[in-house]
Design a protein around this nucleic acid. Structure first.
Length: 448
RNA sequence: GUGACCGUAGCUCAAUUGGUUAGAGCACUGGACUGUGGCUCCAGGGGUUGAGGGUUCGAUCCCCUUCGGUCACCCCA
């Protein structure tokens, strides 16, 4: 039996990889402009880190972690999210001595043992951002502004809605929670079984229930926003004022909640209606208690995570490779030897070259060149070799010219540039179909 | 973890109530066309019908199990 990939994981094939490169380069560009620096982290940590950092009673820790014992018997876990690792590194390497806030981003795969579904996988990827050591509401607004800018950069701004809320803090939330539980118990008869159960376990999440029969009760439920203590209310007002000043549109969504106690005040999500049940493309908020909980200084922190698969789904489509500048067709072994050397030289100069291997008929090679979409083809057979010449054929017109074999490299390097030399996206000269060059595409200094 | 639907070639899909050698298009390779592409035609390579078991003279089709996919619940990115 053939070996197949594991459930819930997927390969990112060449047709799709340029989309990911586009995401990654947009992230580096945008986050860099806001002063964020990349941190690269291990994919697994001691299980204890996640158990403490995410919360023992959460679904993630209770049933979704990829946990295993290494050879010494120590319990390790593939990271289900990045925040705990970022903070662990922040504490472990004393990054807290740097000017605050310490602004970090990281990206890569996360692992959760869940049933796969549209926009949800067992190995998935996140872009993760954390601003640590500053509790000013402007940091929340600034981080949200960066998130919005990132999606604007990708052309997705008008397909996403920004929802924000305030979760209060350790002073005002307990009082609200008590009040909410009281209300939910009163109206338990009109709630679904799940909501009745959650009323005791995790009352804030009840507000999240999507079942229509629960809506009337939940819509009338007391709102956390009405219970915010003065400092939290002021904080939320200021966050919104900053967002308004930046011209960022949002809706205050009082159903937006977080499961863990260390989340305080600002919470936000970017939502879409285009991905089925998985409507959150990015989510974040403030978690002032977490650094201390993990054994660090009492530093405040705020941040967000972007689900990369979900962004790629929104971007949609696939890409076709950009054609090389020229296709070299040797006829026979001797010609191949010469053209291989020429190709090596021209590629050194950053010009993409495709090369035949002299094993097929000229006709077949030309057909292949045509299908690759190349503009120029070089033909060198016995005749040309004998004269130290090469034929350069312009495919569209069919016109050919003969050049000295010795100067073929210069001729090829001087071919008009088709691909955009700046971005990761270029248009084919035919105009219709877009093609992609790798984000590492090089333009040689001699040919800007 | 629960539920529904679905697995046939690299891709998109066929295959009479269960019927003998599982087909087509696209893609790939070659030929018609000895060293000159786009069009056309022909041919070829490719499949343990996801896997395992069962019923049957006979299973892609019916049954069971399992793996995977899709969607939803749960939860989240």
């Amino acid at each position: 039996m053939n070996i197949k990939s594991v459930r819930g994981v997927h390969d990112i094939l060449p047709a799709e990889a340029p989309l990911w490169q586009r995401l990654e380069s947009a992230a580096r560009r945008v986050f860099g402009a806001y002063g964020y620096r990349e941190i690269r982290l291990p994919l697994f940590e001691r299980t204890e880190l996640f158990a403490r950092g995410i919360g023992e009673v959460t679904d993630i820790v209770q049933k979704e972690m990829y946990t295993f014992a290494d050879r010494t018997g120590e319990s390790l876990t593939l990271r289900p999210e990045a925040t705990a690792s970022v903070l662990r590194a922040y504490i472990e390497h004393g990054l807290h001595v740097q000017p605050k806030p310490v602004k970090l981003y990281t990206m890569g795969p996360m692992f959760r043992y869940e049933r796969p579904q549209a926009g949800r996988y067992r190995q998935f990827h996140q872009l993760d951002v954390e601003a640590i050591g500053e509790d000013h509401p402007a940091v929340d607004a600034e981080v949200i502004g960066m998130l919005v800018r990132f999606f604007a950069e990708l052309g997705l701004a008008d397909r996403l809605a920004l929802h924000i809320n305030s979760l209060g803090d350790g002073v005002c939330r307990p009082a609200y929670r008590e009040r909410l539980v009281e209300y939910l118990r009163q109206h338990a008869a009109r709630l679904c079984a799940e909501c009745r159960d959650r009323t005791e376990r995790n009352p804030l999440r009840v507000l999240d229930c999507k079942k229509p029969e629960c809506r009337p009760v939940l819509d009338q439920a007391p709102s956390l926003l009405d219970f915010l203590c003065d400092p939290c209310a002021d904080n939320f007002t200021r966050v919104r004022a900053y967002l308004d000043a930046m011209g960022i549109r949002y809706v205050v969504d009082r159903r937006l909640v977080r499961g863990f106690d260390y989340y305080v005040r600002t919470a936000f999500e970017l939502l879409t209606t285009e991905l089925g049940a998985q409507n959150a493309v990015a989510g974040g908020g403030r978690y002032d208690g977490l650094v201390a909980l993990l054994g660090g200084p009492p530093d405040a922190a705020t941040g967000f995570a972007i689900g990369m698969e979900r962004v790629v789904l929104l971007l949609g489509g696939t890409t076709t490779p950009c054609p090389p500048a020229a296709f070299l067709i040797p006829l026979g072994d001797q010609a191949l030897t010469r053209l291989l050397a020429v190709a090596q030289e021209v590629r050194e100069r950053g010009v993409p070259i495709e090369l035949g291997y002299g094993t097929r008929k000229l006709r077949a090679e030309l057909e292949r060149a045509h299908r690759l979409g190349v503009d120029h083809v070089v033909i060198v057979g016995e005749t040309e070799l004998g004269r130290e010449e090469a034929i350069i054929r312009e495919m569209k017109s069919g016109s050919q010219r003969t050049v000295r074999l010795a100067s073929l490299g210069d001729e090829l390097a001087a071919l008009p540039e088709r691909a955009s030399s700046t971005g990761a996206t270029a248009l084919r000269s035919e105009g219709a179909a877009a093609c992609e060059v790798g984000s590492a595409a090089v333009t040689s200094p001699e040919h800007p």
